[in-house]
Measured scan of single mutants.
Amino acid sequence: EEKRQVKQVAKEKLLEQSPNSKVQVRRVQKQGNTIRVELELRTNGKKENYTVEVERQGNTWTVKRITRT
């Protein structure tokens, strides 16, 4: 359940930055209360990979860091 929520948060964050792209989740890793989500962003056939680190704060998820990989 929490992985599902985190995927959603990570996707939304990337789509905010580039709204007309397609996002696909590649991998989800958990480390303590930080969850790392690896995503693939496609814009006009151009692929970019991103890693989004999401942290739990109380009962909400906040995006800590977005890295292009």
Rank of each mutant, 00 (worst) to 15 (best):
E1R: 05
E1S: 08
E1P: 05
E1W: 04
E2V: 08
E2A: 08
E2T: 10
E2K: 03
E2G: 05
E2I: 12
K3P: 04
K3H: 14
K3T: 15
K3G: 10
R4D: 12
R4G: 06
R4N: 09
Q5C: 07
Q5T: 12
V6L: 07
V6D: 01
V6A: 15
V6E: 02
V6Q: 03
K7Q: 14
K7Y: 11
K7T: 15
K7V: 15
K7N: 06
K7S: 15
Q8P: 02
Q8K: 14
Q8C: 07
Q8L: 07
Q8A: 11
V9H: 04
A10Q: 01
A10H: 01
A10Y: 01
A10C: 05
A10W: 02
A10K: 01
K11Q: 07
K11L: 13
K11G: 03
E12C: 07
E12L: 06
E12P: 01
E12G: 06
K13E: 03
K13C: 08
K13V: 13
K13H: 08
L14T: 02
L14H: 01
L14W: 02
L14V: 08
L14P: 01
L15E: 04
L15H: 04
L15W: 04
L15K: 06
L15N: 02
L15A: 04
L15G: 02
E16S: 08
E16R: 04
Q17N: 09
Q17S: 08
Q17F: 14
Q17T: 11
Q17H: 12
S18K: 11
S18D: 05
S18V: 12
P19D: 02
P19A: 03
P19T: 03
N20W: 02
N20Q: 08
N20I: 04
N20L: 08
S21M: 03
S21T: 04
S21Y: 03
S21W: 03
K22E: 14
K22F: 14
K22C: 08
V23L: 04
V23I: 12
V23G: 01
Q24C: 10
Q24K: 15
Q24W: 15
Q24F: 15
Q24H: 14
V25L: 04
V25W: 03
R26W: 06
R26D: 02
R26A: 04
R26N: 07
R26F: 09
R26Q: 07
R27H: 09
V28T: 05
V28H: 02
V28E: 01
V28N: 01
V28W: 10
Q29P: 00
Q29K: 09
Q29D: 10
K30M: 15
K30L: 13
K30W: 15
K30H: 13
Q31E: 13
Q31T: 13
G32I: 03
G32K: 05
G32L: 04
N33H: 08
N33P: 08
N33Q: 09
N33R: 10
T34W: 09
T34N: 07
T34E: 04
I35E: 01
I35F: 15
R36K: 14
R36I: 15
R36T: 12
V37D: 00
V37T: 00
V37K: 00
V37A: 02
E38K: 09
E38R: 09
L39P: 00
L39S: 01
E40I: 13
E40V: 14
E40A: 07
E40Q: 11
E40F: 11
L41D: 01
L41V: 13
L41K: 03
L41C: 06
L41S: 06
L41I: 08
L41T: 06
R42C: 07
R42V: 14
R42G: 04
R42K: 08
R42H: 12
T43R: 06
T43D: 08
T43I: 10
T43M: 09
T43S: 11
T43H: 12
N44A: 10
N44G: 10
N44T: 05
N44V: 07
G45V: 04
G45Q: 07
G45H: 07
G45W: 09
K46I: 13
K46F: 10
K46H: 12
K46T: 11
K46Q: 11
K46A: 09
K46D: 06
K47A: 09
K47F: 10
K47Y: 11
K47H: 12
E48T: 09
N49P: 03
N49Q: 12
N49H: 13
Y50M: 03
Y50T: 01
Y50D: 00
T51M: 12
T51L: 12
T51D: 04
T51S: 09
T51R: 06
T51P: 00
T51I: 13
T51G: 02
V52G: 00
V52I: 09
V52S: 00
V52W: 01
E53H: 07
E53G: 02
E53P: 00
E53M: 08
V54N: 00
V54G: 01
E55V: 13
E55P: 00
E55R: 05
E55T: 09
E55G: 05
E55L: 07
E55A: 06
R56V: 05
Q57A: 11
Q57R: 10
G58E: 09
G58S: 06
N59G: 13
T60N: 13
T60L: 08
W61C: 03
W61Y: 13
W61H: 02
W61K: 00
W61N: 01
W61Q: 01
W61I: 05
V63F: 03
V63K: 00
V63E: 00
V63M: 01
V63W: 02
K64P: 02
K64W: 04
K64F: 09
R65N: 10
R65Y: 09
R65P: 01
R65Q: 11
R65S: 15
I66T: 03
I66Y: 03
I66W: 04
I66H: 01
I66D: 00
T67N: 06
T67V: 12
R68S: 05
R68V: 07
R68P: 07
R68A: 06
R68I: 09
T69S: 10
T69P: 04
T69M: 13
T69Q: 12
T69D: 10
